[in-house]
C-alpha cells in the first residue's frame, strides 16, 4: 500500500467511481493553462480538490482516526508490526512486477527473495525475516512505473476517502486492483469473496493511519495551509520514489540563487524581470 491512500485496495474495485474521477481529470486538462499559479501547482481542480479535502478531513477526524486509535490501543506493537509485514508480503508479487517493468532487476531479485523467504521462514509473511537479514521492503506500484517510463503525473487530485493522487497514480492503482493476484484468487471461482479486498484495504489503511496520528495532527496544527502542505509532500514523495535512491535523495537545487543575489539592486532588478520563471521548477 502506498502512503496516503487510505482504503486504497477497497477503491480498486470501485471502477465506476474511478472512471468518473478519471473522466473528470481528462476534462480538466484543457483548463490547465488558465492561470499562472495553476501551472505552478498543476492543480487546476483546486476548488473541487479543496472541498473533497475538507470532506476527507471530516471523515478522518470523525471515523478514521477514532478507529485507528482504537486499533492502536487494542493491539500491541509486535502484533501490528506483524500485520504490516503480512500486508507488505501480499504486495510483493506486484512490487516484483513493477521492479521488472522498470528494468530494476536487482531490486526485482530482492523482492523475489523477500517473498520466498518471508512466505516460508517468515510464516506466511508475518515475520519480516528478510528485512532483519538486511533486505528491507521497498515500495513500488504501477503509478511509479509509469513515472519511471516518463508518463507525466498530470494534475493533482484529491480522491474521496483515499486522499492525494494524480491521474497517473490513480490509474495505476485501479489497474493494480485488477492485476492483484490475491484479489483475483479470492474473488474468482469458486471463492467469489468480494469483500476480502475491501477488508484488506481497510485494515491496511487503518494500520497506516494509526502510525501517523500525532504526526499528521501536528502538521495540520502548525501549517498555514494544510492542503498546500500535503499537496507538496505527496508530489515530492512520489517524485523521490521514482528517482529511487540515486546518490543522495535531495531535490534539485532549483532556485537557490541567493549566493549571487544577496539583495544587490542589479540582481533584484534582473530577477524582477522574470520572477520565479526559472526558479520555480
Amino acid at each position: 500500500m502506498t502512503k496516503f491512500s487510505f482504503l486504497r485496495c477497497a477503491l480498486l474495485d470501485l471502477t465506476v467511481v474511478s472512471a468518473l474521477i478519471l473522466g473528470g481529470c481528462a476534462a480538466s486538462n484543457t483548463e490547465q493553462q488558465v492561470a499562472t499559479y495553476e501551472e505552478e501547482f498543476n492543480d487546476p481542480l483546486e476548488n473541487v480538490n479543496r472541498k473533497i479535502f475538507d470532506f476527507n478531513q471530516f471523515v478522518d477526524r470523525n471515523a478514521i482516526v477514532p478507529v485507528a486509535k482504537a486499533y492502536r490501543a487494542a493491539l500491541p506493537d509486535p502484533v501490528r508490526d506483524s500485520l504490516r509485514d503480512f500486508l507488505n508480503n501480499l504486495r510483493e508479487p506486484l512490487v516484483f512486477v513493477n521492479d521488472t517493468l522498470q528494468g530494476q532487476f536487482k531490486r526485482a531479485g530482492e523482492t523475489m527473495g523477500r517473498f520466498v523467504i518471508n512466505s516460508t521462514i517468515g510464516i506466511g509473511g508475518v515475520v519480516d525475516v528478510a528485512g532483519r537479514w538486511g533486505v528491507p521492503y521497498h515500495e513500488e506500484d504501477l503509478g511509479l512505473t509509469l513515472g519511471a517510463w516518463g508518463v507525466p503525473e498530470g494534475p493533482y487530485l484529491v480522491v474521496p476517502i483515499l486522499g492525494p493522487s494524480t491521474p497517473r497514480d490513480l490509474g495505476g492503482q485501479v489497474a493494480e486492483g485488477f492485476g492483484d493476484p490475491w484479489n483475483n484468487i479470492v474473488t474468482g471461482n469458486p471463492w467469489t469473496l468480494y469483500w476480502i479486498p475491501f477488508v484488506r484495504g481497510g485494515v491496511s489503511g487503518i494500520d497506516t493511519r494509526s502510525r501517523y496520528i500525532e504526526t499528521l495532527a501536528d502538521i495540520e496544527r502548525t501549517s498555514l495551509d494544510y492542503y498546500a502542505t500535503i499537496r507538496s509532500l505527496y508530489r515530492q514523495r512520489r517524485t523521490a520514489l521514482i528517482r529511487h535512491e540515486q546518490e543522495e535523495n535531495l531535490p534539485p537545487k532549483a532556485g537557490f540563487t541567493r549566493r549571487e543575489d544577496r539583495g544587490t539592486p542589479s540582481t533584484v532588478a534582473r530577477s524582477a524581470v522574470g520572477p520565479g520563471v526559472v526558479s520555480e521548477h
Partner: peptide
C-alpha cells in the same frame, strides 16, 4: 540550507505552502 528526508525537502515544502498562502 536544506534538509530532505526520503526525498522530501523542507525548503521546497515550505515554499510551496507559502506560495499558496500568498496566492490565496
Amino acid at each position: 540550507s536544506d534538509v530532505a528526508v526520503d526525498g522530501i525537502s523542507m525548503a521546497v515544502t515550505q515554499r510551496s505552502e507559502f506560495a499558496s498562502v500568498i496566492q490565496h
